[in-house]
Design a binder for these strands. Structure first.
Lengths: 230, 230
DNA sequence: ACAGAAACGAGAGCACTGCTCTTGCAATTG
DNA sequence: CAATTGCAAGAGCAGTGCTCTCGTTTCTGT
């Protein structure tokens, strides 16, 4: 070992990064379906077989891009939730929702890669799962903080969600939230992504005339529905 | 003309139907990404170039499948909404929601074709639009019938949706619904599809333990939220 | 009824894809 | 310094969508 863990090892991670960068550019231009290994190689002045030293298969490269995209989106939303330290849970929730949409509009093809049709036979590597849950964790934490600073809100009258939600998993993120509130939390989360999926995939054309305002109204409704702040 | 508009014309529509049927089988097996014209031809004992007499391009064949799938889903939901004639709007709404999910689970690859990542550069032919809106129209009609049989519910206190929803379009389907209720209607619609997209694309793994019960609970919440029946 | 036009399926071929295997060169290691 | 390992190049395979040409069959106008 040369103290630097080898010049070659460093070159290798640099090359992997270069490949991902080039692939990401092509992904942005042409979408996941149009991303070709050969074009990535061509763009880099390489021959296609050379890429197989770094990614065993095209799907493996795509998986790496998925991983990075989840983390990119996740950190963007985390930043939005934490900026304005000490802000109300309502403001943090609104900011987080806006951050998701802002990221999605700025990276439509990456959004589609994450939330569109899964690539056939794809099984998320365990590492990806953690990256994928970052946004949901932010949402959960905000709801948790909201409930934590309210002495009594859960009336215990809510629906019993134990038959269909993983209460143990959700409790890890939202220990202060009454389980009867989990369903609304999950629904707010699916609603945000469902709405953005519909918006980006064109299903709101003809119904929504101003996507910006519509999204803001949706977030408002969800805010009320979650009984944030108050 | 032979009174039958020609034997060949009949053979042509039969052939088109046969191609679509074969393509649909392959779509079911391998998903849209794995659907290959050559394999369709092979399966039919034809040579690939022969298919180009009927579909100018692979995307055109996919578009035909999309059209049929929209209509298949649409008629399934319409049937669910109209069965039990005279049923309450609540029951009709629940049945329609269940019909959407039942169809989606039975046709996952077709669902992904409709609501997953759009095929790049795809522009829905105008004919497809009508087919695509059938489900939304059913939902809208149910909400309309609900409000029509309630003398006074709209308090006029609701949000002004004119800045971001196409009130004119929505009024065509739901003339008896107060525009301030449009937003909730649209949100219920996007929620159902957002939830099913998440479920089918694997994003609920780890959160939902019983998809059936979870969906029923979601529909219940939406029913309350829409203030159906009462 | 017959000639011309149109539709059809077969086949060859082009440019492209993901992926494999071999070969020579360069860097790294003992 | 010798041997091993990592690397890029190149050829090649099987597959793709799509185009073009070529006989054959069917329809159509006169």
């Amino acid at each position: 070992m040369t103290g630097e863990q080898g010049v070659r090892a460093a070159a290798r991670v640099a090359q992997i990064e270069a490949i991902k960068t080039t692939a990401r550019e092509l992904l942005i231009e042409k979408g996941a379906a149009g991303l070709s290994l050969r074009e990535v190689a061509r763009e880099m002045g390489l021959v296609s077989s050379a890429l197989y030293r770094y990614f065993a298969t095209r799907d493996e490269l795509l998986t790496a891009l998925i991983f990075d995209a989840y983390n990119d989106l996740g950190s963007a939303v985390e930043r939005a939730a934490e900026s304005n330290t000490g802000a109300s849970t309502t403001v943090r929730w609104r900011n987080s929702c806006q951050a998701v949409r802002t990221w999605a509009l700025a990276h439509p093809n990456e959004f589609a890669l994450l939330y569109g049709t899964p690539i056939p036979g794809y099984n998320a590597p365990t590492g990806t799962i953690a990256a994928a849950t970052r946004v949901a964790t932010v949402f959960g934490s905000i709801l948790n903080d909201d409930r934590a600073q309210k002495a009594e809100l859960a009336d215990g009258q809510g629906r019993d969600v134990r038959p269909f939600l993983s209460v143990s998993n959700l409790a890890l993120v939202m220990p202060a939230v009454d389980p009867s509130d989990y369903l609304r939390g999950v629904m707010a989360w699916t609603h945000i992504f469902g709405h953005l999926t519909f918006e980006l995939f064109g299903h709101l054309v003809g119904t929504v005339t101003s996507p910006d305002l519509a999204y803001a109204a949706v977030v408002d409704e969800l805010t009320e529905w979650l009984r944030l702040g108050e």
